[in-house]
Structure formats: structure tokens, C-alpha cells
Design a protein around this nucleic acid. Structure first.
Length: 933
RNA sequence: GGGCGGUUAGCUCAGUUGGUUAGAGCGCCUGCCUUACAAGCAGGAUGUCGGGGGUUCGAGUCCCUCACUGCCCACCA
């Protein structure tokens, strides 16, 4: 039977197969617990739901790699590991996408189609294309529970959203009113503060003269937006501003318009800015709106939803706001009241979605009051959200994000949750045309709650997408009120949220606000009242960095530097890309994605692949020679450590050593992942597999495997150990490189002729340090031998011994060290081409000798000495050791140091000084022996 | 305007509570087709840890300051 692996690793040949297998076999589904919570603390994560319109980008890939590594790691450690996937309906993005599609088809516009037909059309679009991103996720091997996949507009989630809205309304936390909001005139909807981005731009500050109605004088105002003067209802000056004292209470005539407006005194007017007199346009500026309220001024809207002037009869009617600006400036100039135009840089507000300039607009909207006490009492939403983090119920990593969070949460304003869109959760409120009463209800009401007439109309606005996604940590588990569903009992709070800082406020903060608010009302599994500590939506938040291009530039379509993960995956394999991201994922640092690095990790995958091939060959030879290897991967429990002990003793030093290394690398990986140090974990497994298992263990194993008859115990033990270590390494690597390890793990079992003990390596047990003897003695012994081998290799190279020629060496050191070396002369022979080792009684120095802190070694070889090079080397050594020695001696001579530093530091330094002195003397001795220049 | 980061080898980054010779990968140089792997093996070079000051027996690590740089937030017309 042949189990030959192809010579080179080809990810495309294996990845799709396993991706499909994992999904079809439903390996990662976590059923709803029948009663109570699963044993232990389940590891539950919610995937930040990608937009249905989305295509996989590097940010997703990083996010999913991190989540998957953790999920697989926890699962293998025996925890219930639940990762819930889903997609977000993404109101604005999706509506725009479909509108664009309609336009490109030359079809009707959204408005022509009408609301019902249009939303139907969006659903069609969603059915057809909405799965693209989850398809790509499957390709990444994300070990999510697909049986729990949701869409934020699913019927069940829609019910939950309605429930949440109605509850907040009943608690007096949702209100409706006419306020200035950020208006996007392109898509013609309100957007929240967060959806506005500011950009510094060069603008103008226009100085305009307004005459007093009584003709007694005039005053000059300064504005960046002269077109809004059409809506002016006052001019404000600071009450303390002496220049304008006499104007207060008088009436001005608005140029071009002729309307009379008062001069009011308001603190907001800044005497330092402009002329100190500011025009007041309550319907088109948030500050002016506030002034208007203070002075009881009318609110005069002069623009429509497209940001065109709407003043029937006026010459400016129907002009776009920017065209109107030009016309008005011209007309003011003609009138002679345009006094000055100054350059003025200021930050203008742009819509994040469309990039158009935001128009502050007075309109009727729905708001969530975040700082208000609910009608039934208790803390405000923001107060709870602050307390949850402040009191440590939620932990941020990196923790500096907690500061950012507080900064925002402490200054939070009410949240405008209504959008004038058609795609989204329609607000469950009904307007009565007769009495004006609003009926907010879970079910479609038959009649107005005020006057009882049946002719009521549902609110046309929908909810901000983030409102529904903010509810996900509990709605994903079946929340529809105060009842504790089995899933909520088992899985809430989730353990960890992994996400990017770009949605810290949009999503993370909203989940905390809404989770803390709603879940406080849901009892604990034991029936007790829930406290904030258990109302939180997640215990940990891990904020990952941004993936940038190789030159640290932000990826953007306009720059054309977007790296398509699918393309990189096709080129290098998913495992290599995952490993690249994991190994770069150091908290708080952006990732400069350089595919040179990915190429390196593909080489790593290839290395693993070839180690498997080597193993296969040894097993084949072993089988032919009549050896049997029986190995079963641990599922729940480990082999008893004593079994490893016995195996290692029979196999030899290198096996004892590699077990000791496993002991230590298991610890490293576990503690790194515990702290979300994906980079450290990845580099630990990398160094172990390549630097230790391949570079040393596999080479040394070649010495031990003697398949010529008769059978011997050492070969048998080594063969077993080899399989054990390799299989363990596969499990260790599996969370990082799930495809490759799955393939090789199955191949190994096939080769061994035994059934794999599980359907997937992902369902086996993660290697634990305690499984392997720490064995410091073997570790130390190998360190000496490795150091010797490396030193000899270096010597050979320097001296110029031909590659293939074996040479004798002399060693000097303690009897323990020389004994160890002599006993392992075969290692030296194999790895450093040493033909013979003799022990010298005297210290070794001279041109062919090298010294380390544990031994001297000299090569017995006639050579032509490059005196100059040798002198240079020795002088360099001398200088180095001398410098270190002097530094050590200086410090040891410092009484304060001896008195204050801990003993182990002082002793260590003394030892170091002695070693440096010896090494320095040897270097000096070598120099003395060189022929003079 | 407010807040938060970063600056360590040519490049990308580690560096745990201050403690004994500051590390890794990639790249670079030299030599090897030693059959698991040339996507490899072996050897090698490379750092006044952004500048200055301070605390300390001891600073890449703590404090101050300056410079450069990035990000977030913000209703100054």
C-alpha cells in the first residue's frame, strides 16, 4: 500500500477538500444545550457580521484568522467552542448597491419603483449575491457553527429588534422630535455623528454688511456659508462685546431678502472670531439651532432634502446649495455689502458613505436618549456602559482602548436612530392623521391608540443598521424579551469579541450599551437577578490592528493598493496567509502585509510537508523491517507522562530533549494565546518545528534508525517517538494551519494503517506541557552538544576544511562535559563531520581552537593560516570580552551595587566576569601565538 | 482645539514587573544538489534602542522635555 505524498506541498490540492469536509460534516456546530450550561466556561464569540454587500478583504482575513486560531485552540483544549457567524443587512450600503445596479441596467429608479417593489428587489439581490462573503469565509476554514448563521433582517431578528425598540420607547428612552441632524443630500437620509467624517479644507470667510432698519448704522457679520443667509432669523453678538452693545435689541434688514431680523445677545458669539457678529440660521446649523431655542426665534428652512434652495418666488429657488452660494456672493458684491473675503481653512463635514458635504438639516427624527434615566428608574444607558468597563466587567486588549472608549462614552450625545431609507428594520410606530398620536407597538395596531380611528400609517423611516447589530450578542441567542432562552443561559455573555478599532464606537460601544441595558432584565440561569457583571455582552474585547500594504499605506481602492486575500491565498495557500497574519498580529501595531513574508510561511508549510514525507519513508522502511508503530492521537486525555518517559529512555538523549522542548513550547503557546499574543504563539511553533524538530531532531533520528536486522529496541523506540513528536507537532500547529495539518494527520494515520481516532485533528486534544517531562538535564546536555556542533561547523568553515572531509577534534572541559561529548561522538560525526573526539587535559588555545563558557574545542587539521584574518578575529574577540569584563568589574567594584542588587544578579555577574576573563585570556593567548606581522 | 499611540538591524516587527553579552523573520554575503525539503542545508555580517536631561547600584524598559510620525474625537460661525 502506498501513501506517498507528492514531493512538493500544493495547498490548492488539499484546502478546498477540507474546507468542504468541515462544513459538510458539521464538525463545528454546537447544539443548544438541553438543560443548563455546558460544562466549564464555554468559549463563545460572535463574528463581526460582514455586510452582505461585502467582499472579503485583508481585515476580515486577519479578524477571522485570530478568531479561528482561538476557537480551534479552545476547542482542542476541551472547551465548548462556539463561533457564531452572520451577515449584516447594511442599510445604506446595500440600498446604494441595488440603486446602482438598477441604474446600470437602465431600469427604473428607486423612486419610480416604489418602496415595496424596491425592497423586494433588494431581497432578490441579497438571495443572489449576499452569500458571497460567507462563501469566502468557508474557504478560509473558519470553524464557525454554520447551523447558527443569521442575517440581521431574518424574521426572528426583526421581531427582536421591534421588541427592543418598543421597550426603549416604553421606558421613555426613545423620543421623536425636530432637531438638526447630519443630512446626506445624496441618499437623502439622516446619518449619525459617527457617520460623518471631517476633512480640513481651504474655504472662505465672507464678511457681509447688514444695515440697521432705522438707518442708524450697520454691522458686519462673518460666515463661511453665505447661502444660508436666506434663512437668517437674527444676528448674535456677545453680551460683553463693547463694539456691539448698542446694537442689541435693534433690528437689521437682511440684504437681498429684505426681511427684518433682531440683534440678540448670546454668549456663543465669539468676539475673537470673524467680526464678532454671527448670523443665526436655526434650521441649518446646530449652534444656531441652540441660539434659536434660547431666544425663541423661528426656524426657517430654506432647503429641501436634496440641499437645493426651496423658496418659491425667490430668484434662488431650486438652485443647488453651492450654485446658490456663488449667486448670492455675486449679488451681495453687486449690492456693495460684501465687505471682505478671507481665506479660511476649516474642517468640513462629509458623509462617510457618499463623500458629499453633510447638510445640517432640521428634520423630524427618532433618537435614543443615552444619558437619560429610564422611566422605571435606574442608570442611564451610557452610565451602565461606562460602569461595565470601569468596574472591570469588560476588559480591553490593548487596554489603551478603554481610554478611547471612556473618552467617547463620557461625551456621548443622543443617538439619531432613524434613517430615511427603504432597506432596513422599519420603525414600529404608526401615525394618526386625525389626532396626531403616535402608536408604538410590537404588532401592527388596528387602530390609533389615541382616537381609535383605523386609518393610521406606519412610520416610513427605518432604523440605523447599528441599532440591530448592537443587539446581536443576545438576539443571536434567541432574545425576544425577558425570558432566559436555553442559548442565552448557555452562551451569554460571550467570552470574547475580536474586532477592529474602526467600529469601536459604531458597534462595540453600542453592544455594550444595549447589552447592559436589556440583559439586566433577564434572569441568570439559577434564577437570580443578573448584575452588570453578567449583563455585559462579552468579557473581553480584543482590538486588532489595521492591515496595510507592504509600504505601510492604508489600502484603498483609489490608491489601487488593495491586496485581495483570495488572490494571495491562491498564490500561497490559506495556511501560509493565516500564518503570516498570526505571526504579525502583535496587539496595537498595524500589520504591513508583505507577501515576501507569506512566501516564507509557504516555505514553512512545505517544510512541514517534507518532514511528513521523511516520516513516511522511515515508517515504510520500518514496516518492511518488521517494526510496528501503534499511535493514537489523544482525544480527551493524554498519555501518562510515564509512557513518554519510558519511550524517551529507550530512544536516547535527542528524544528526551525533544520531549523537554515540547514541554516548554506547549507552555509558550498556551500562555501566548491566553494573552492574545498570536505573534508569540506563531513564532514559538515555528521555531520549534523548524529550528528544533527539523534541524536537530530529524537529523539525529537518522542516527538511531537502523533498519538492518536484527530488530533493536532503540530503533523501535525512536520510530515510535518520531511519530509521537510529529503527531503532537501537527496538533500544536493545527489552529494556525488547519488545512495542512488536517491533511497530514489523516495521511499519517493511513500510513500507520489505523483509523484516525477522530473525524478531524481539530477534534483532538491540544498538546499540554504537563504531558511531557520537563527534563532540564537532557535539555542542558543537548544545549552543550548543539553549541559544540555549531562551533565545530564554524571552525571547519574558517579553517577551510573541505565539506566532505571528516576531521578529528580535541575537547577540554569538566569531566561531565567531556564525558557527555565522548558519549555522543556519533552526533558530532553526523552533524559536524568529526571523525574522532579526544579529551585534552589542558586548556586548548591557538589558531584552530575555540572556547565557550562550557568547553574548549580544537580542530586537528593542517592548514594555511590567513594570519591577517585570524588576527582580526582574535582582536575583535579580545576587544569584546575585554569590554564586557571591564563593565562587569566596574559594576562589581561598586559597593552600592553589591549592597543593593539582589544576590542572584550579583552572583551571575561574578560568574560572567570570570568567564569573560577566561575567554579574554584565551583570545590573548591566541594572538600571542600568531607570527608577528 | 482635545485625546491616544509610535520612533529598536537594510525592511517588517518582538523585547514580559528596570537586572547578567538587545532578538526573530525577510533581505544581504560565503560555501554546499549532504536525497524529507534548493520553497533546502551550513556558516557569516549588521544596532551610539529618535535627540537631550533626570531617577536608580543598574534604563531599550520609569519620569521630564524636544523632534518627527500616525490615529481617533470635536457644533467655533
Amino acid at each position: 500500500m502506498s501513501h506517498e505524498l507528492p514531493k512538493a506541498y500544493d495547498p490548492s490540492a488539499i484546502e478546498e477538500k477540507w474546507a468542504k469536509y468541515w462544513v459538510e460534516e458539521r464538525l463545528f456546530d454546537v447544539p443548544t444545550p438541553v438543560a443548563g450550561a455546558p460544562e466549564g466556561i464555554p468559549f463563545v464569540q460572535l463574528l463581526p457580521p460582514p455586510n452582505v454587500t461585502g467582499r472579503l478583504h485583508m481585515g476580515h482575513m486577519l479578524n477571522q484568522t485570530e478568531m479561528d486560531v482561538l476557537t480551534r485552540w479552545h476547542r482542542m483544549r476541551g472547551h465548548t467552542a462556539l463561533w457564531v457567524p452572520g451577515t449584516d443587512h447594511a442599510g445604506i450600503a446595500t440600498q446604494m448597491m441595488v440603486e446602482r445596479q438598477l441604474a446600470s441596467e437602465g431600469g427604473p429608479t428607486r423612486q419610480e419603483l416604489g418602496r415595496e417593489a424596491f425592497t423586494k428587489r433588494v431581497w432578490q439581490w441579497k438571495q443572489q449575491y449576499g452569500g458571497a462573503i460567507t462563501e469566502q469565509m468557508r474557504r478560509l476554514g473558519a470553524s464557525v457553527d454554520w447551523s447558527r448563521e443569521y442575517f440581521t433582517m431574518d424574521e426572528r431578528l426583526s421581531r427582536a429588534v421591534k421588541e427592543a425598540f418598543v421597550r426603549l420607547y416604553e421606558q421613555g428612552l426613545i423620543y421623536r422630535g425636530a432637531y438638526i441632524v447630519n443630512w446626506d443630500p445624496q441618499i437623502q437620509t439622516a446619518v449619525s455623528d459617527l457617520e460623518v467624517v471631517h476633512e480640513e479644507r481651504a474655504g472662505k470667510l465672507y464678511h457681509i454688511r447688514y444695515e440697521l432698519a432705522d438707518g442708524s448704522g450697520s454691522l458686519v457679520i462673518a460666515t463661511t456659508r453665505p447661502e444660508t443667509m436666506l434663512g437668517d432669523v437674527a444676528v448674535a453678538v456677545n453680551p460683553g462685546d463693547k463694539r456691539y452693545k448698542s446694537f442689541i435689541g435693534k433690528t437689521l434688514v437682511l440684504p437681498l431678502v429684505g426681511r427684518e431680523i433682531p440683534v440678540v445677545a448670546d454668549e456663543w458669539a465669539n468676539p475673537e472670531f470673524g467680526t464678532g457678529a454671527v448670523k443665526v440660521t436655526p434650521a441649518h446649523d446646530p449652534n444656531d439651532f441652540a441660539i434659536g431655542l434660547r431666544h425663541n426665534l423661528p426656524q426657517l428652512s430654506i432647503m429641501d432634502e436634496r440641499a437645493q434652495i426651496k423658496l418659491p418666488g425667490s430668484p434662488y429657488d431650486a438652485l443647488d446649495r453651492f450654485a446658490a452660494r456663488e449667486r448670492i456672493v455675486e449679488d451681495l458684491r453687486a449690492l456693495g455689502v460684501l465687505i471682505d473675503i478671507k481665506d479660511h481653512n476649516h474642517a468640513i463635514a462629509l458623509s462617510q458613505r457618499t463623500g458629499v458635504v453633510i447638510e445640517p438639516r432640521l428634520s423630524m427624527q427618532w433618537f435614543l436618549a443615552v444619558n437619560k434615566t429610564p422611566s422605571r428608574g435606574g442608570d442611564s444607558i451610557a452610565a451602565k456602559a461606562i460602569a461595565a468597563v470601569r468596574d472591570g466587567h469588560i476588559q480591553f486588549t490593548p487596554d489603551m482602548y478603554a481610554k478611547t472608549y471612556f473618552e467617547w462614552m463620557n461625551n456621548i450625545h443622543d443617538w439619531c436612530i432613524s434613517r430615511q431609507l427603504w432597506w432596513g428594520h422599519r420603525i414600529p410606530a404608526w401615525h394618526c392623521g386625525a389626532c396626531g398620536k403616535i402608536t408604538v407597538s410590537r404588532e401592527t395596531p388596528g387602530a390609533c391608540s389615541g382616537c381609535g380611528i383605523t386609518d393610521i400609517k406606519q412610520e416610513t423611516d427605518v432604523l440605523d443598521t447599528w441599532f440591530s447589530s448592537g443587539l446581536l450578542p443576545f438576539t443571536a441567542f434567541g432574545w425576544e424579551g425577558n425570558e432566559l432562552t436555553p442559548d442565552l443561559a448557555a452562551f451569554y455573555p460571550t467570552q470574547l469579541l475580536v474586532t477592529g478599532f474602526d467600529i469601536l464606537f459604531f458597534w462595540v460601544a453600542r453592544m455594550i450599551m444595549l447589552g447592559c441595558h436589556f440583559m439586566l432584565d433577564v434572569p441568570m440561569p439559577d434564577g437570580s437577578t443578573r448584575t452588570l457583571a453578567d449583563a455585559v455582552p462579552f468579557r473581553d474585547v480584543y482590538i486588532h490592528a489595521l492591515v496595510r500594504d507592504a509600504d505601510r499605506q492604508k489600502m484603498s481602492k483609489t490608491k489601487g493598493n488593495v491586496i485581495d486575500p483570495i488572490q494571495i491565498i491562491t498564490q500561497y495557500g490559506t495556511d501560509a496567509v493565516r500564518f503570516t497574519l498570526a505571526s504579525q498580529a502583535s496587539p496595537g501595531t498595524d500589520i504591513a502585509f508583505n507577501d515576501a513574508r507569506t512566501e516564507g510561511y509557504r516555505a514553512f508549510a512545505n517544510k512541514i510537508w517534507n518532514a511528513a514525507r521523511f516520516l513516511n519513508m522511515q515508517l515504510e522502511r520500518g514496516t518492511e523491517a518488521g517494526y510496528t508503530v501503534i499511535h493514537a492521537s489523544p482525544l480527551a486525555g493524554a498519555e501518562p507522562a510515564s509512557a513518554y518517559e519510558t519511550l524517551a529512555t529507550a530512544a536516547g538523549l535527542e528524544t528526551r530533549w525533544i520531549f523537554a522542548r515540547l514541554n516548554s513550547v506547549c507552555n509558550e503557546v498556551d500562555s501566548a494565546l491566553q494573552n492574545y499574543r498570536f505573534d508569540e504563539a506563531a513564532s514559538a511553533v515555528y521555531r520549534f518545528f523548524w529550528g528544533e524538530f527539523c534541524d536537530w531532531y530529524l537529523e539525529l533520528v537518522k542516527l538511531r534508525l537502523d533498519f538492518t536486522p536484527p530488530k533493536d529496541e532503540q530503533t523501535a523506540a525512536t520510530l515510535n517517538a518520531l511519530v509521537t513528536v510529529f503527531e503532537t507537532a501537527l496538533r500544536l500547529l493545527s489552529p494556525f494551519m488547519p488545512f495542512l495539518t488536517e491533511e497530514l494527520w489523516h495521511a499519517l494515520h493511513a500510513q500507520l494503517g489505523v483509523a484516525a481516532p477522530a473525524k478531524s485533528i481539530a477534534l483532538t486534544r491540544y498538546p499540554q506541557a504537563a504531558d511531557f517531562p520537563a527534563d532540564a538535564e537532557s535539555a542542558d546536555a543537548m544545549t552543550v552538544l548543539q553549541e559544540l556542533i555549531v562551533t565545530v561547523r564554524g571552525l571547519r568553515k574558517e579553517i577551510g576544511v573541505p565539506e566532505k572531509e571528516a576531521t578529528p577534534v580535541q575537547v577540554h572541559g569538566t569531566t561531565q562535559v567531556t564525558g557527555l561529548i565522548s558519549a555522543n561522538a556519533d552526533m558530532l560525526a553526523k552533524l559536524a563531520r568529526v571523525s574522532e573526539v579526544t579529551v585534552a587535559t589542558e586548556a586548548l588555545r591557538g589558531n584552530s581552537a575555540r572556547s565557550t563558557t562550557s568547553f574548549d574545542v580544537a580542530m586537528v587539521y593542517e592548514r594555511k593560516i590567513d594570519v591577517a584574518a585570524e588576527r582580526e578575529r582574535l582582536q575583535k574577540d579580545l576587544a569584546k570580552y575585554d569590554k564586557l569584563l571591564q563593565a562587569a568589574e566596574r559594576q562589581l567594584g561598586n559597593e552600592a551595587f553589591i549592597a543593593k542588587a539582589p544576590a542572584h544578579i550579583v552572583d551571575g555577574l561574578k560568574k560572567q566576569a570570570a568567564e569573560m576573563r577566561a575567554l579574554r585570556d584565551k583570545a590573548q593567548g591566541g594572538l600571542d601565538e600568531l607570527p608577528p606581522e
